[in-house]
C-alpha cells in the first residue's frame, strides 16, 4: 500500500490533468499559460510512473515466487539486523520507527486509503467546476491601480469590441474617466454588490496563477434599484456606454449605462486572465 500510493495518486492526477486539457477545462483551475507545461509534465510523469510501476510489479511477482521456492535459510519476514532488512523497509517506505508502532501503522494505512479515495472522487468523479461567485463575494474587488496597470498601456486605441471586463477595468483605472467616456461596451459577467443601491459592478474572477488567487475585477453599471429585479452573483450580459454617473454619486464618477441587459447562465469559461 505504502509503495503504491504514489503511483496511484500520480496516475489519477495525470489522467485528470490530461482529460481537463483535452476538454478545454484545465483553465478552470490554472492560468492558460501553464497549460503546455502541465500537459508535458503530466505525460513525462505518467510515463516515468508507469515504467517504475512496471518494474515494481515484476519485482513483486518475482519475490512472491522466490518466497514459495525459498528455503528456510533466507526468511523475508526476519527483520534482524541484516543488510537487506534495511533495503526492504526502504522499498516499502516503512521505516524501523513505524514497525515498532503497529497502531500508528494501521491508522496510516487508513489515511492512505482515504487520500486515494478523496483524490479519485475529487479528480475523476466530480464534474469540473469554476469557483462559485459566492466565494468570490467575500473577496474584495481588485481596485488597486497597480494590479491592472501593466497591460493597460496596450489597450489604448485598440479594437474595443473584444474587450473583457478586465480590459475595461484596467483602462478605467489607468486612464481614468477620459479614457473610457463615450465608449461602447459589450461585456458579460456576474453582478457584484459593492454597497450601492443604484450602481452594481459587473465582474469576473481574475486568475493570475490558479483558482486559489482568483480576485474579482469589475466595472460599474448604472442600474437604479437593481436589487429589486436582479440577484447578486447572477450572470448577465450587457451592451452600453460609459457616461457620467446619473445618480450623481461622487464615489463612482463614470458608469456604464446599459442599452441592452439580459440574464445569462454561467459561461463555460467564467474567468479572465
Amino acid at each position: 500500500m505504502a509503495r503504491w500510493i504514489g503511483p496511484l495518486l500520480a496516475l489519477v492526477a495525470v489522467v485528470a490533468t490530461l482529460w481537463l486539457a483535452a476538454t478545454g477545462k484545465l483553465a478552470l483551475y490554472i492560468h492558460p499559460r501553464y497549460t503546455v507545461f502541465a500537459v508535458v509534465m503530466a505525460v513525462i510523469g505518467g510515463v516515468a510512473v508507469l515504467a517504475g510501476s512496471f518494474f515494481l510489479l515484476r519485482k513483486d511477482a518475482k519475490d512472491a515466487r522466490a518466497a514459495v521456492h525459498d528455503h528456510a535459510d533466507h526468511d523475508h519476514a526476519d527483520h534482524a539486523d541484516h543488510s537487506d532488512a534495511a533495503h526492504d523497509h526502504d522499498h516499502d517506505e516503512i521505516g524501523p520507527g513505524l514497525l515498532a508502532r503497529p497502531r500508528l501503522l494501521r491508522s496510516l494505512t487508513v489515511g492512505r486509503v482515504l487520500i486515494i479515495a478523496g483524490a479519485l472522487v475529487a479528480l475523476l468523479i466530480l464534474p469540473p467546476a469554476a469557483l462559485t461567485s459566492a466565494t468570490a463575494q467575500n473577496r474584495a474587488l481588485a481596485t488597486s491601480a497597480d494590479a491592472l496597470q501593466a497591460p493597460a498601456a496596450n489597450l489604448v486605441g485598440t479594437d474595443t469590441s473584444k474587450f473583457t471586463v478586465k480590459d475595461w477595468a484596467s483602462l478605467l483605472r489607468s486612464g481614468g474617466e477620459s479614457a473610457v467616456a463615450g465608449q461602447t461596451v459589450q461585456i458579460s459577467g456576474y453582478l457584484l454588490d459593492n454597497g450601492d443601491a443604484d450602481v452594481v459592478y459587473v465582474a469576473r474572477l481574475m486568475v493570475t496563477c490558479c483558482a486559489v488567487d482568483a480576485q474579482p475585477v469589475g466595472v460599474p453599471v448604472y442600474l437604479p434599484d437593481w436589487k429589486k429585479d436582479h440577484k447578486a452573483n447572477s450572470w448577465v450580459k450587457l451592451t452600453g456606454r460609459f457616461q457620467q454617473n446619473p445618480s450623481g454619486s461622487g464615489a463612482v464618477p463614470v458608469v456604464i449605462v446599459p442599452s441592452e441587459f439580459a440574464g445569462i447562465s454561467e459561461p463555460d469559461q467564467p474567468y479572465v486572465y
Partner: peptide
C-alpha cells in the same frame, strides 16, 4: 464545491512542478 475547486487547483498547479 469551492473547497474541492480550490484544493484541486492547488494540486493541478503544483503537480507539474512536483514531477
Amino acid at each position: 464545491q469551492d473547497f474541492v475547486t480550490l484544493s484541486l487547483s492547488v494540486v493541478i498547479e503544483s503537480l507539474p512542478f512536483v514531477i
